[in-house]
């Protein structure tokens, strides 16, 4: 470690992304996520119940399916409820930081100069809550693309403007 620090600059003096104060995404997005999982829960259980009543699933099939569904849904509820407060984005002078996830917590740093283009999207459900998804494209394969869902109009526009401004400066 010491040798490495002498060779380059002191690694501890580099700006640390993990100390950036993140902005949460819009609270309304939580409502959307809740509506989505409630919808799926109601749908799946009503399908299961209908099947049970109509064609009487055999016992060894019914309970495992029920069990799997319950586990799956409790995981997704946990992910939404616990994970939502962790959905945060941060903007720095030269990059954008996004973090999310309860079971797998992911923090991504994307420098503005690597951004190819930006897209603001809005699906029907998002429209009802006036939310937006900001999709940030990088060059090459889509693996490094970043998409931030659940932004309000203000944040989405600000983010986009910031990215475009930084990209402009970079090109000059």
């Amino acid at each position: 470690m010491l040798e490495f620090q002498n060779k380059t600059l002191d690694i501890n003096n580099l700006p640390r992304f993990e100390q950036v104060e993140g902005h949460p995404v819009d609270r309304a997005y939580l409502k959307v996520l809740r509506i989505l999982y409630l919808f799926w829960i109601v749908l799946m259980f009503s399908i299961l119940m209908t099947l049970e009543i109509l064609i009487e699933l055999p016992q060894p099939a019914f309970y495992p399916i029920l069990g799997v569904l319950i586990i799956l849904f409790s995981f997704s509820i946990l992910e939404v409820e616990k994970g939502f407060p962790r959905k945060k984005f941060g903007i720095r002078e030269k990059d954008i930081i996004f973090q999310s996830g309860y079971f797998v917590f992911t923090q991504t740093i994307l420098p503005y100069k690597r951004i190819q283009h930006v897209e603001i999207k809005q699906g029907p459900l998002f429209k009802a809550f006036s939310l937006f998804t900001l999709k940030i494209y990088t060059a090459g394969s889509s693996a490094g693309d970043l998409s931030i869902a659940g932004l309000n109009k203000n944040d989405a526009d600000k983010l986009k403007a910031q990215i475009l401004k930084a990209a402009d400066i970079d090109n000059k």
Binding site: F103, V104, T108, P111
Partner: peptide, 13 residues
Amino acid sequence: IQSVAIKRNWYQQ
């Protein structure tokens, strides 16, 4: 490099 990400699953956290 294009970008960097750090991923931590529930156990790693």
